[in-house]
């Protein structure tokens, strides 16, 4: 008797009532397919979301780095094509210097040395060009307290008084293009994630339906014995949730390996315009929530599918 009880528990795998199946869902064909599909979907969701996080990192790095930053340029060549005299150039530089020092809305500014400007242009010219003789513009990088249109207008009005080809460049035009591009990429990532979720829902619903068709007679019998819809659906829920959990764990482990490989192969360091693929704690938590989301999708989808199918029974 005790021996039999032990065998019984062993056969079910678990002695607990809540963990047993009346239907042989665990060894039915198609489970492997669903597992693989959920693994794939979790992997894709992870890649898409990582891409979105990286994009977010890029845009915040660029926009925070460039926000309130502006550059004042005194061109080396005047609008009529004549080269500006060296002395005139330094006179203008000194006037601007004096003007900027008096403005309260300017947090800081720095007149770039001739060498620094030469360094900036040297990549375009090559190392063998003698920059000492080159006509170089004067660049002043300015950090503003805030870059409202009003203040920018005031600066432009003032610097034009010294020479009307002195320019204020706020990086805004090209930055906003890039931010718009990044924004639409992030939007695409959200759409793709939703499509991945919808695909998972459809796949699980289909799997549950085919499983229910397979065991239709058995389900009808449970129904006739007075099993509630909840009793029957809980078996399918448990089955789908366990499968989805396994699948998504496989998916995100594969995803983590892929990301690891990617970050080893991708260029890193300060020169890169793209920050190294570095995920913070928050991002990792979001990615680790993928299995939770997969289980939730599996649970709800299985439940709704079973209840709908059961409500189609004649009585």
């Amino acid at each position: 008797m005790a021996l039999l009880a032990f065998q019984h528990d062993k056969k079910l795998g678990v002695a607990d009532n809540s963990a047993r199946y009346d239907l042989p869902l665990h060894n039915s064909a198609g489970s492997g397919f669903l597992l693989l599909l959920v693994a794939l979907m979790s992997f894709l969701a992870m890649m898409t979301m990582t891409g979105a996080f990286a994009m977010h990192g890029v845009t915040s790095m660029w926009s925070s780095g460039l926000e309130n930053q502006a550059t004042i340029e005194i061109p080396a060549r005047m609008s009529d094509g004549e080269l500006r005299d060296k002395n005139e150039l330094s006179a203008l530089r000194d006037k601007l210097n004096g003007f900027l020092a008096d403005q309260s809305y300017i947090e800081s500014y720095e007149v770039m040395s001739r060498e620094a400007v030469a360094d900036l242009v040297s990549p375009w010219l090559g190392d063998d060009v003698n920059t000492a003789e080159l006509p170089l513009p004067v660049l002043i990088s300015v950090k503003l307290e805030d870059s409202s249109a009003d203040i920018l207008y005031r600066i432009r009005q003032n610097i034009r008084k010294y020479a009307d080809d002195i320019r204020l460049d706020t990086h805004e035009s090209w930055l906003s293009d890039i931010l718009r591009l990044a924004g639409s990429l992030q939007f695409s990532a959200v759409i793709v994630t939703l499509i991945i979720g919808a695909t998972t829902v459809i796949a699980i619903a289909g799997a549950v339906r085919s499983r229910m068709a397979e065991f239709r007679g058995d389900i009808e019998l449970l129904h006739l014995m007075g099993a509630s819809s909840t009793y029957i659906s809980s078996q399918f829920q448990r089955h789908s949730v366990i499968l989805s959990f396994k699948g998504s764990i496989i998916g995100i482990i594969t995803g983590a390996l892929a990301l690891g490989l990617f970050s080893i192969l991708s260029p890193s360091g300060a020169e890169s315009l793209v920050p190294a693929l570095h995920l913070g704690l928050f991002e990792w938590i979001i990615l680790l929530l993928i299995p939770v989301a997969a289980c939730l999708i599996a649970h709800i989808t299985a439940k709704i599918t079973v209840l709908r199918t059961l409500s189609e029974l004649p009585l």
């Binding site: 129904h223 014995m225 099993a227």
Partner: peptide, 11 residues
């Protein structure tokens, strides 16, 4: 449905 299930449990 729930009422029917309860009755079926008595049969």
């Amino acid at each position: 449905q729930e009422g029917l299930a309860k009755l079926r449990q008595k049969i």
